[in-house]
């Protein structure tokens, strides 16, 4: 296995070892309030699993963390840094597009529908962003992209276009693509929901591997087994609020809230 490129454990975080801190996050689309005050803390190196019924706002919350959505109220800090805004003299100032892009580079994101670039090979998909962001020279980026693809078990598919890969392979390329920016935090939005059942395992294996290497991860998933085995914390969301949270085994075995019970009964 290649070396871990991210600061593992508490090293490099803003003192208190908290990677993500969300305080009273509100988000509305027009007049519909989708997030109604989300509080959450993810410590560095932790895997936080986010569960909840469809429409509960899980994806929206995840997209707020890397500022793909603007929040209406509250604060989100990643590694101690306020996302999307700068606080100066007690006032919030919107960040410039460039600064937001810089913040996003530290946060990897994996989508349910992969969203690979179809006109590029697996290798180009992974090497593109490090080169464009001026972080690496082309040759170096390609070497590292090849190593990353090797790491997710696709060392023999470097030249394949996304259309020539299975769903599970595409998702693994997507994970490698996110890792290429050497993020301190990885966001996964139902990374296995679009996959055939027999392909789920290979993607989860890569994620387990990442978790073992100390990557901080927030994972929206319906894979209870993954949450129980890999998760350090579990958050159950419904209707834009956090209903219940705790250690995954604890919450899964003894859900306290009725809505959690009802949801778990359905997915287990």
């Amino acid at each position: 296995m290649t070396q871990v490129t991210t600061p593992a454990g508490a090293a490099g975080t803003a003192g208190d070892g908290v990677m993500v801190r969300a305080e009273q996050v509100h988000k509305s689309f027009g007049s519909v309030e989708v997030l109604k005050g989300i509080d959450l803390e993810v410590r560095s190196g932790e895997v936080c699993c986010l569960l909840g019924p469809s429409g509960s706002g899980k994806s929206t919350f995840l997209r707020c963390i890397n500022h793909l959505e603007k929040i209406n109220a509250g604060r989100i800090r990643v590694d101690g840094e306020l996302i999307g805004y700068r606080e100066r003299g007690g006032k919030l100032h919107e960040m410039r597009e460039k600064e937001i892009a810089t913040q996003r580079r530290a946060i990897g994101m994996v989508f349910q529908r992969f969203n690979l670039f179809p006109h590029m090979t697996a290798l180009q998909n992974v090497a593109e962003a490090p080169v464009l962001s001026g972080r690496e020279r082309k040759a170096a980026a390609r070497d590292r992209a090849a190593a990353l693809l090797q790491r997710v078990g696709l060392g023999d598919k470097l030249g394949n276009y996304p259309g020539q890969l299975s769903g599970g392979q595409q998702q693994r390329v997507a994970i490698a693509r996110a890792l290429a920016m050497q993020p301190k935090l990885m966001l996964f939005d139902e990374p296995t929901s679009a996959l055939d059942p027999e392909l789920v395992g290979e993607v989860l294996d890569v994620m387990k591997d990442l978790a073992r290497d100390g990557m901080t991860m927030i994972v929206v998933t319906h894979e209870i087994g993954f949450a129980r085995e890999v998760g350090d914390s579990l958050i159950f969301m419904d209707d834009g609020v956090v209903v219940e949270s705790g250690a995954p085994r604890e919450v899964i075995a003894n859900p306290r809230h009725d809505r959690t019970k009802a949801f778990l009964a359905k997915v287990l």
């Binding site: 793909l68 892009a101 580079r105 989508f111 969203n115 670039f117 464009l132």
Partner: peptide, 18 residues
């Protein structure tokens, strides 16, 4: 072009022109 393409690229920290 699928919206998800822009989103994925944004999440990678690419600029609008890129």
């Amino acid at each position: 072009v699928d919206e998800g393409q822009t989103e994925a690229a944004q999440a990678l920290g690419l600029s609008r022109t890129q």
